Amino acid sequence: MTSAPAAQASQAPAARTSGTPRHVLVTGGGTGIGRAIAARFASRGDTVTVTGRRAAPLEAAAKETGAEPVVCDHTDPEQLAALLERLPERVGVLVNNAGGQTDFGAPDEDGEAGEGGASGLASYARRFRANLEANLITAALTTHALTDRLAEGGAVIHLGSIAADKGNGAYGAAKAGLAAWNVGLARELGVRGITANVVSPGYIAETEFFGDALTGERRNQLVADTALKRAGVPEDVAETVAFLASEGGRHITGQVIAVNGGAHSTR
């Protein structure tokens, strides 16, 4: 008689053969973490497409990694539809990396966000929605657009943030929403053997995240908050993403994986 565990195992989708190239889409792949992720997948022989809103960083990333660059604003459904025409019929890995803290350097056209008048409320609403668009809606739209193309046994990985746990206004709310939304997505895609997870970085140096807003004092505090007493680097995140998309990550789904050097712990 076949045991229950054996019967269940026979129904599970087969993992991809080790070394079999896949097509990988990395959104926001022109700089920083996205670029490191693209390089990591390209180094193992996968075919990679990197997207972003700026052509120059994408072209530079393409020269470095061999990825195909495609200019695409992932908040725009029409641009996403055009992107589909540049992708193959099967995408093995989707990395939703596009996003960022949109409040940094944002002009305040209608008064201070803290004002209670109509102009202040309009400014606050615009800023809040911008973070939701950049960090949550982009991932939802892109995943929805590619759902039918995701290969069985593939992986979807979103880039979250420590801000979802430690709090950081609209940006933190957007990343927390991303993690909550991913729980349902994991169940939806799981019947096809596709995993869906969130990688949540802490402070990662060598990125454009802070722009000119990071002071030396703030950087030192972010490093001091870690248990390892060092800043993360894009490759730290890239290695975690690559693992979740590997055979070793086939039974990990619906999770948030922290890459923060111990700055925020889970039990």
Rank of each mutant, 00 (worst) to 15 (best):
S119E: 15
G52E: 03
T266N: 13
A130D: 14
V93T: 14
V223D: 14
E112W: 05
A81N: 12
S18N: 10
G105N: 08
Q221H: 10
G169L: 02
A174V: 03
L159H: 05
R53D: 00
I137E: 14
S43W: 01
R250K: 11
A60E: 15
G254A: 05
F210C: 07
C72H: 06
H144M: 05
G248Q: 09
G254H: 06
G105F: 06
R149S: 08
R192L: 04
E208I: 01
A151R: 09
A163G: 09
G100T: 06
V241K: 08
P201M: 04
H23A: 12
A180D: 12
A155E: 14
N168K: 15
G32Q: 04
D148S: 15
G66V: 07
T215A: 09
H74P: 00
E109K: 15
V95P: 03
N131E: 06
E239R: 14
Q221W: 01
T31I: 01
T75N: 12
S119Q: 15
G249E: 10
G172V: 02
P13D: 10
V237D: 04
K63F: 00
R90G: 05
R54N: 10
W181I: 01
G262A: 02
A213N: 15
G249Q: 09
A6V: 09
A12L: 14
A242M: 05
F128A: 13
L146D: 10
P201W: 01
D148L: 09
G117M: 07
A12C: 07
A60G: 11
E152R: 02
V241E: 14
M1Y: 02
D236C: 09
G154P: 01
N182L: 14
N220R: 02
I204W: 09
V95C: 08
G153I: 02
Q11S: 12
G211D: 05
E239C: 03
L214E: 08
G262M: 10
G114M: 06
A125S: 13
Q79D: 13
E109P: 07
A245E: 14
M1N: 10
P13L: 02
P69S: 01
L80A: 10
T20C: 04
R16Q: 12
T240I: 15
L244C: 08
V191R: 08
A231V: 08
A113C: 11
A122G: 14
L150G: 05
A205E: 12
L244M: 10
R149F: 00
A231I: 03
V199S: 08
R40F: 00
